[in-house]
């Protein structure tokens, strides 16, 4: 579909680059960290926080706790935590641990042990139903590596059985896990086909394209089935200065590279 770039899409792209910049600055003091997760999910977080997720009303679950860096960065942009807090990221005694904890701001639930988030989302949705609280969306950010864990499928099957239409999974399909590309370790494809077979509404999108993300977020909000947005992404997106073989799970960021990254992002945001 030919499209003119809208204000909303521009703001999502800028928001995403701001997440990337803040993530670089959080990781830089340690020289390595979960930057790849922020780079691949930046547009997903940006789309959520600017377009779909209403803090205090909707629920947002960050299933892979390593992605919490993106929520911290986005949270500053919408005033959920002060900018100075990011300086403590991953440091001793910080509330902002590198892998999400109970003290993590900017989300309603974060997990650390992988693939537990969808069950949490199911529980939040069921609680709304039992309490008669309609109209709330429950978003679960998940990752493609988490599809290897059985609990994902327990929860997927059960959510469809319960008809939890308020539930939307945003799957960061960045083809990255600790030991390398997901596709080299386990075949998780066809992702959409699997979820459809489980009774879900599935949408496959370019996870760095704001227009596609926005359309998917809108569309999934009105489907009576639980929905999954499969966002195809890259752990190097938005930072041309990163080496091609950068480890997507745990990117090394020595001072010169960090400086180059900051310059690249600041010039794009200028």
């Amino acid at each position: 579909m030919p499209s003119s770039t809208t204000t909303s899409e521009v703001s999502i792209s800028r928001f995403a680059d701001t997440i990337r910049l803040r993530a670089v600055m959080m990781v830089a003091p340690q020289g390595f960290g979960y930057l790849g997760q922020a780079l691949s999910s930046a547009e997903i977080f940006a789309g959520l926080y600017t377009h779909a997720y209403r803090p205090g009303h909707d629920r947002l679950v960050c299933s892979p706790g390593h992605y919490i860096i993106g929520a911290y960065a986005a949270g500053v942009e919408i005033g959920l935590l002060p900018e100075e807090a990011l300086l403590t990221y991953g440091q001793d005694d910080s509330d902002l641990e590198a892998i999400g904890t109970e003290t993590s701001p900017a989300v309603d639930l974060t997990c650390g042990s992988l693939s537990q988030g969808l069950s949490g989302g199911v529980g939040l949705s069921l609680a709304d139903r039992i309490k008669g609280e309609a109209g709330r969306r429950v978003f679960v950010l998940a990752s493609d590596g988490e599809l290897e864990e059985g609990q994902t499928w327990e929860a997927a099957m059960f959510a469809a059985h319960q008809g939890l239409g308020a539930l939307t999974v945003l799957l960061d399909a960045n083809d990255s896990q600790v030991d390398g590309p997901v596709s080299e370790i386990t075949t998780v494809e066809p992702i959409a086909g699997k979820w459809e077979a489980f009774g879900w509404h599935a949408v496959d999108v370019d996870g760095h394209d704001p227009e596609q993300l926005v359309r998917a977020l809108d569309e999934t909000g009105s489907d009576p089935r639980p929905s999954i947005i499969i966002a195809r992404t890259s752990t190097r997106q938005g930072l041309a200065c990163l080496p091609e073989d950068a480890d997507g799970h745990f990117i090394k960021l020595p001072p010169d590279l960090a400086e180059a990254a900051v310059q690249e992002l600041e010039s794009r945001l200028a």
């Binding site: 537990q116 949490g120 529980g123 939040l124 069921l126 609680a127 039992i130």
Partner: peptide, 8 residues
């Protein structure tokens, strides 16, 4: 996981 989220 469901039980924990419901308790929240």
């Amino acid at each position: 996981g469901i039980a924990g989220a419901m308790a929240r």
